[in-house]
Nucleic acid binder design. Structure first.
Lengths: 218, 218
DNA sequence: TAAAATCCTGACCAATCGGTCAAGATAAAC
DNA sequence: GTTTATCTTGACCGATTGGTCAGGATTTTA
């Protein structure tokens, strides 16, 4: 029949399932980011999600299936920034938006980036198929775009792949290495101002580096 | 009294100790890089070092002490590149050499870089004192050098710390993410030619990006 | 050669972890 | 109201892991 909350909303089984899966996934993301796949324990995830371990295994039968779900979510967020590349054929605009977006993701979803980094570091036992299919296709189309810019003389001749690596490396560094950055920043995370400065500088150096004038665009 | 090898060299206890510690440390570096601290098992390290696990614990009482030793070695190699910064006060030369050196380290000691990355990713439970002391001092003196270049008008005005982060991120990406790079490169590691191209491009984009002409220097 | 120091190793142990299960609680369907 | 489906959980288990230990082997010292 369903009981009621103070708000007056009914709570059904569907809601319970949705709520629990959500809190488990959130807890899992933070624990996997902090300890890696092996180092993470289902009991710690359950504790952070505030449910008994047995209940976690009711929703996610195995640790690996839970992990896959976490990586899936991250990968989708990660690809979300891809759109920035497509809208326009002005390299200054496209790259500025793409780099900015990736910096924002590093700030807003640092744990996701860490899970990904950890996975690649350990030879990607779980996500290897992503690398070979989705990421491969994504990369191929974008390197083609960059190559076109080069052919049109819009940017300096560079190897498109290595340019992408540079963008990925620099932007994700602010998530993956945020502990190191924080320590070097006197123990405090970069504040909003500092982060905007960093973002602006990354855009400026890369754009200038490949021979285009960084615009005011954000 | 010591036995003899085919070479005629005597084998003493000191040699044995040295030999075993070396092979254990090598095995440990690769296993820690591949599986992280938690994921690594002392029995696998022992297996790769071709000695019984009990013997490993004779030389290194605990897994953590072995890990610390590995990180120590890496950190020293990592700081070895620091010299490139000091010799000369021409930014083009200094940065070209520093970036090249860091790229070489990523190629020649990828596992060390991965151990470091893994450690920072997991909030540096073991090396946190390094970050606060040695790395902090190193960074402070180098940002001062960069600031001087700026004040002298030799390079464009940039935030020295964020410039260092960009260099670290981009160069270490070729170690930490080499599995991803390899996959995107058709399953094969970058060959010597490709790696040199990548190195040259990283130098070029960064130097151009901060307003100096990349020389022919290597 | 005898004694001392160092090195080697199979067998073992306590702790932890992923996952199971059975029995109860709650909501949905009829 | 009764049955059925879903959700909850403490107790438990086999497997793995870091680390120990006793006793033997080898080298060094005297």
């Amino acid at each position: 029949m369903g009981t009621k909350l103070e708000t007056g909303k009914k709570i059904g089984k569907a809601d319970i399932r949705h709520e629990n899966e959500k809190s488990i996934l959130e807890a899992a993301e933070s624990v996997f980011a902090e300890y890696g796949f092996k180092g993470a324990t289902t009991s710690l995830i359950a504790k952070r999600a505030k449910i008994p371990k047995a209940n976690l295994h009711y929703y996610f039968p195995t640790k690996e299936k839970l992990y896959r779900q976490v990586v899936d979510n991250i990968f989708n967020i990660w690809l979300e920034a891809a759109n920035s590349f497509d809208d326009c054929n002005d390299p200054a605009d496209a790259l500025t938006r793409y780099i900015s977006k990736k910096m924002d993701i590093s700030r807003d979803h640092p744990m996701g980036s860490k899970v990904w980094a950890n996975e690649v570091l350990h030879k990607a036992p779980v996500i290897h198929d992503y690398l070979e299919t989705t990421l491969r296709e994504w990369t191929d189309t974008r390197t083609a775009v960059i190559q076109r810019w080069i052919d049109q003389g819009k940017i300096a001749p560079v190897n498109p792949e290595y340019l992408l690596y540079m963008i990925w490396a620099t932007t994700q560094h602010y998530a993956d290495y945020n502990h190191q950055i924080e320590t070097l920043n006197g123990g405090k995370p970069l504040n909003a101002r500092q982060f905007e400065d960093a973002k602006e500088q990354v855009v400026r150096i890369i754009l200038t580096g490949i021979g285009i004038e960084p615009g005011k665009a954000q």
